[in-house]
Each structure stands twice: as structure tokens, then as C-alpha cells.
């Protein structure tokens, strides 16, 4: 199926490319203002992050007395002390491992469950399907803060507080509505003929799901994985409530937030900590970026 649909793409692209080259030799020039504008907006957008990066290499007294741009003229004043203090903090390495231990299952579980559910919502007929789907979409607007106390009561009675299983379940629950919604719309856009010919070839729902739906939905799954990974990786509140800040289980955001005194002293350490905790999500993003971009394109072309 996948191979049958592929030839359309390269052909379309070469046609467009040929047309561009023969009819409009000035096209690259014409696009220059657009590119310049995009680059300018990107740079503007990155200024706060750049400022944060520069500040993370500066002495706290210097940060509170002069702007970060003034540091660029005196690079000799840059120091690594913020990074050293963050890395030396007790428990930082353990927290990094804890964060991975929380984030990876909490990303895989909701995606797996949501894919099954979305397939059922998109391609299987059963009574009450639309109502059920409406309920799932409705859950999108429930603020997770409202669920903290009831879910915590449930976890307490089941003995799940402070355990990794508890926080995986919590994140799975919070991630499911959006994941099901995203996947259902993506799966729903797949051509009906694909399933019909598959079923003529004797494929049951399982085969159709694993051999057809999942492979062609890699872009949507990758997009969802990035969202969910970032959300869980950066989460402080859910971890603090269900998992707690015990050193043996505390994930990175909890440990990082404890670098700061109760009245906000030592905030300069947060600048360095922000870049340390950003490293892994950036890696994940760049690794999945290829799928991410084609995921957006797939949606737009389909519509």
C-alpha cells in the first residue's frame, strides 16, 4: 500500500521544480525578502533565549548590575561557576536518570493506548462510538489541576503514591485525550480503499492496524511523542504531587527548582540549569524533526 502511494510524490515535486526553473528564473530572488523576514523573526524570537544563555555564563552580581548585551563586549568576565554549582549539586545525576525513568514510559504508554483507541474510533463500528469520542474530546478542556486531589486519594488508597507506576499512569491519563484526538483525525484521513483492499487480501483488524495504520502514521506518532516527551520532561507539578521530592525519586525539574532559596535567592543557578535540562529534549527534537516536519506536511496536503 505504502509503495503504491509513493510514486505520486517524487513526480509531483520534479514537475514543480521543472516549472519553477523554466518559467521563472528569478524565483530565488523573489523569495529573498520572505527569507529575510523569516530569519529576522526567528532572531527576534531567540533574543530572550540568547540573553538567558549569556546570563548563564555570568557572575550574579554582574547580571543584576548590567544587561546581558553589555557582557558581549567583555567576554573575559564569563565564568562557568553557575554550571559547576548546578552539576555539583547533590542528586543532580540521580535526578537525570529519574527523569528518564519517568518520561520514557510516560511517553510510550499513552501513545500505544491512544493508537489502539484512535483506530477503533476511526475504523471500527460499535454502538455509542461518537458519544464516546465526544467524551474524550470533552476531557481536553478539563484542567489537570482539578484532578490532583481525587487522583491522589485514589493513588493513596492503592499505595501508588511515590512510585513510578503512579506517575506513569497519571501522565498517561493526562496525555490520552489529546493523543486520541490527534491520532483519530490522522487515521480517519487514511483512504478507505486501503482498508478495503487489505480486507480483501484477508487482513483482520490487527493486521490492518500493525501493518498499515502504524507504518503510515509514523509522522503523527513522532509529533505526539515530541509533545508528550517535552510535557513530561518539563513537568514539575504532577511530579511534585504524585511522586514527591524524595531524593531517590525526584525528577530533574523538582531538583532544579530546589536550587533556589525560598525567597528566590540563587536564581542565577536556574539559568545554567535551564540549559542543562534543555539538552535532552533538544536532542529528541532534532532526532524526530524529520518526522515532525513531514507530519505537518502530511496533514496540510491531506486537508
Amino acid at each position: 500500500m505504502r509503495t503504491a502511494s509513493m510514486p505520486g510524490h517524487p513526480r509531483g515535486r520534479t514537475e514543480a521544480g521543472a516549472r519553477g526553473r523554466t518559467r521563472d528564473p528569478l524565483a530565488p530572488l523573489r523569495r529573498t525578502p520572505v527569507h529575510a523576514a523569516i530569519i529576522a523573526i526567528c532572531l527576534l524570537w531567540m533574543i530572550p533565549t540568547a540573553g538567558l544563555l549569556v546570563s548563564s555564563f555570568r557572575d550574579p552580581a554582574a547580571v543584576s548590575n548590567t544587561g546581558w548585551w553589555e557582557a558581549l563586549t567583555t567576554p573575559s568576565e564569563f565564568t562557568l561557576q553557575n554550571y559547576e554549582r548546578v552539576v555539583d549539586t547533590n542528586n543532580m545525576g540521580r535526578s537525570f536518570v529519574n527523569s528518564l525513568f519517568v518520561t520514557i514510559p510516560a511517553t510510550v504508554m499513552p501513545i500505544l493506548i491512544a493508537a489502539y483507541a484512535a483506530y477503533a474510533f476511526a475504523w471500527m463500528r460499535f454502538p455509542g462510538r461518537d458519544w464516546l469520542f465526544l467524551m474524550v474530546v470533552g476531557l481536553l478542556v478539563v484542567p489537570l489541576q482539578m484532578t490532583l486531589i481525587p487522583v491522589l486519594q485514589l493513588f493513596t488508597s492503592w499505595g501508588l503514591t511515590g512510585s513510578f507506576l503512579g506517575i506513569w499512569l497519571a501522565h498517561t491519563g493526562y496525555g490520552l485525550p489529546f493523543a486520541i484526538y490527534l491520532f483519530r483525525n490522522f487515521f480517519g484521513g487514511l483512504p478507505r480503499e486501503m482498508f478495503e483492499s487489505a480486507s480483501i487480501d484477508g487482513a483482520g483488524p490487527w493486521t490492518a492496524f500493525f501493518r498499515l495504520v502504524l507504518p503510515v502514521s509514523i509522522p503523527a506518532i513522532a509529533s505526539m511523542a515530541i509533545f508528550q516527551f517535552l510535557w513530561v520532561w518539563n513537568d514539575l507539578l504532577v511530579a511534585l504531587v504524585y511522586l514527591g521530592g524524595r531524593p531517590s525519586v525526584a525528577p530533574l525539574p523538582v531538583t532544579i527548582s530546589n536550587l533556589v532559596n525560598s525567597l528566590g535567592q540563587n536564581w542565577q543557578l536556574l539559568t545554567a540549569a535551564a540549559f542543562i535540562s534543555m539538552a535532552l529534549p533538544l536532542l529528541v527534537f532534532f532526532a524526530l524533526q524529520r518526522y515532525f516536519v513531514s507530519g505537518i506536511l502530511a496533514g496540510s496536503v491531506k486537508g
Binding site: I149, L152, Q153, T156
Partner: peptide, 11 residues
């Protein structure tokens, strides 16, 4: 916030 939630949640 954290203490109120934990106390209300029985933990």
C-alpha cells in the same frame, strides 16, 4: 499548594 493537595489527597 503542594501541602494542601497532599493533605487533601490523604498523602
Amino acid at each position: 499548594a503542594v501541602l494542601t493537595t497532599r493533605v487533601a489527597g490523604g498523602n
